[in-house]
Design a protein around this nucleic acid. Sequence first.
DNA 1: TTAGGGTTAG
Length: 863
Amino acid sequence: MASSTPPPHWSLTTSETSKNHHSRHLKNTQTATTKLNSRWTSKKVSLDHPPHPKNAPTALPPFSSTSQLSVDFSGKRSTRFVSKMHFGRPKFSSARHSSIAVDVLEMAIKCSGNGNGSGYGVENVLLNYESRLCGTDDYTFLLRELGNRGELSLAMRCFEFCVGRERRFGELGKLASSMISILGRLGKVELAEEVFKNAVNGGYGTTVFVYSAMISAYAKSGCCYEAFRVFKEMKDSGLKPNIVTYNALIDACGKGGAGFKRASEVFDEMLKTGVQPDRITFNSLLAVCSGAGLWEAARDLFHEMVYRGINQDIYTYNTLLDVACNSNHIDAAFEIMSEMATKGILPNEVTFSTMVRGCAKSGRFDKALSLFNDMKYIGIKLDRVAYNTLVAIYANLGRFDEALRIGNEMEAIGLKKDVVTYNALLDGFGKQGMYGKVKDLFVEMKAQNVSPNLLTYSTLISVYSKEGLYIEAMEVYTEFKHRGLKADVVFYSKLIDAFCKKGLVESSVLLLHKMMKEGINPNVVTYNSIINAYGQSTTADHSLHHEQWAGSSELTLTSGVAEPCANNEEGDNIERIFEQLLPGKSTSNKKVITSGQDFACILQVFQKMHELGIKPNVVTFSAILNACSRCSSFEEASLLLEELRLFDNQIYGVAHGLLMGLHENVWLQALSLFDEVKRMDSSTSSAFYNALTDVLWHFGQKRGAQFVALEGQRRDVWPYAWSSSCLDLHLMSSGAARAMVHAWLLSICSIVFEGKELPELLSILTGWGKHSKVVGDGILKRAVEALLISIGSPFRLAKSNIGRFTSPGAAVTAWLRESGTLKVLSLQDERNHPRGSQLFNLPLLPLTDLDVALSSNFQALPL
DNA sequence: TTAGGGTTAG
């Protein structure tokens, strides 16, 4: 790279405001500002949201006590680096080949299909037709078409034949770049590497085409590091990268998880070297945003394209939709979709699958399903991806008849159910506890010659383990081993979580050792499972004979980064764990561990994450606060948070401060943290507020909990949760919900005391027990019900809706006018900070002007 | 040289 420091004009990583755009455009294109402004003012509505004041910062060093909240805090960020690898997309050949080449192609394929698996005939065919084939164009056609048909070994033999007979370096280079490109497209990056090396060593590979093809092949397999290495080699050998090279390198950043900053550096370099970006450059940059969830940056890029006069195509729009869907901007996605029509870019099956997935992710299942109808209505055929998406939605919703019906419909149009279809069905049935059906499906898929993959096995083992069906789990694991598949971080994390859920924390830690010995690095998900288990455990399993475990002792977490284990002499720990869990070998010798031990373990896990550079996120935060709530004492909880401040003073400092009692300084810090959390996606921010209010409520800091919940409310963390007739609590934790019930009733109180009438019917919604196996029997509902009874409110469970409490407005009015009600509703903290009296200007409730003079009981309320 | 699908934590 020419420069490791991005030039000042480049700021897409931090979401440019239009002002940033100005300077950038001016520097890069010397265009008049007036022209620029006119372009900006003509922006379409869907892309015209005001820029965020402070967009997500670039990655910060971990655990910096003074830093802003890192994007890694989001619980929605994927831990997968290589996200999408759709190998085998056909590449259409140009029409430069002769008709003879088409015949030769058919003959070559026939040769391989006539029982002569050696492909012996291919060389003969080529020899026979050599004189009639029109040089490299025909050969590259053959290679590409063989690749499109999955005839990889035939393509390689054909390539070797051509290379053996060709003497001209130019033609050899063309053949090599074609072959590398075909192999890259098929995900055969190692073979591509071999062809590349031979080409370079043979003297015909030192061309921009060969190098670019290799970079692209690396990109497609997510090998970003290697792509950059080859890029450097290319420049070192005196070759000048062209637009294709740069585009491929940007693609590598997206597929290899190098991030937007790196991609923008590539973009800078291409500008600096005089290579003008094109549509594909921008489409690739947009794809980088998709992986990183950078909606603002994507929007800016789109504007930049418009400004530069680069036309958008279906790729541009589909990628932009993908960013919107991935970053929880589903409404914007719909607006973009309607904009496509006005530009004459017709949505295709990719557009619909992207949108359907976006809707499903945001919980709009009805909309997702109706999109499929739209798709059929306008005549877009459902393809494999669309069908599998549909099957997964029905399976997740527990609508199994429909899931199976879609599977059959898929087969009826000639698309066989594949491993993705079966995995979706197994996961859905498994989550609903339909183990018999799971077994049948697993048998069926194998009978249909659909090979189970790593995901199939990890799903089954996890499903069975969580239910305590260890015999079944072990059988599946044994089969997995016999298949010779290699476990990955997800496989282990699922297993670790399953054991954690059964309270088998020590077994989980031993699995952690095992995975690291195999060279598999745990990630934030793995550690969060363990922290969560410690927070919840009252017992630890001592079912295992520790002396059998080479290299593992106590609960010590393996130090350092995972390193591959050269030998595997210690046997298979997983099978041993299952054996110990089987009936008759029960875990009767569990010993009680104290929360103090838990704390030491949690701190140890946190320390380990720090050492490994694994950044804790909102789920970690939530798990730790839950653990605090399970502490035997307030002092212990505050001590744990105090310790964690050493790692992250911003987040744990605020949590600790609020727990100790409100005062001005901590509240100001809290407000600044809330502002940063607001920049995260909605599920991250609601998880944050839920966890924080829960722990405060748990320890009797109810006033603090209410302040926090109201700040969440002010920042739209729970949109549409609050109106004068209805309080919707279904996205809140029980602590947040109870704090909100108090705040809402106080606001209703202000309406009453202003002499206004209440609506005829008031409702409090708790939802249907989303996280409970028994519909309508959620923890939230029970907590709210107990609260409503304890404060003597007239709200009662609605007969027609088991997740709704209702009361006539008149009854609420009468109750609020009773003498003791106001006192019951106003909340106090059990512990006050010595400087708590300095509290002033606390946040305004989202209430109307509540008459402070109503009662001295309101002294504590932030009005 | 560019776009969509199934997996882990709360």
